[in-house]
Amino acid sequence: MNIDEIFDFTSFTIDREPHIVLDPQVCAGCDNRGCIHSCPGRCYTWSEAEQKMTFVHDGCLECGTCYVVCHRKAFTRWRYPRGGFGVAYRVT
């Protein structure tokens, strides 16, 4: 199985507003960044060059892993998407 493709098999209704917002300062100072590889949706990427964490809400599976894994409380917002938006499972 091509791992890059598995993310394309999940459906989303994408909101303009992200439901999770990070404080980049906190992420820059983090010594763990467990979110990057723990996130099943591959939503977190760390840029070594820019020293910057990016979260893309488009592919968020709303599983809650980052909320629990982040020990630096980097979230200025962590809520579920507005009603009707976000991941839409069909047969899982």
Partner: peptide
């Protein structure tokens, strides 16, 4: 997802899922 992929490719497991076509990926 890499661990999921490795599991699906483990020789004994690969035989059980052979021919399966991915429909949906999910997490919780």
């Amino acid at each position: 997802y890499d661990l999921l992929n490795a599991f699906l490719e483990q020789p004994q497991v690969a035989k059980m899922v052979r021919g399966g076509r991915l429909q949906e990926y999910s997490a919780h």
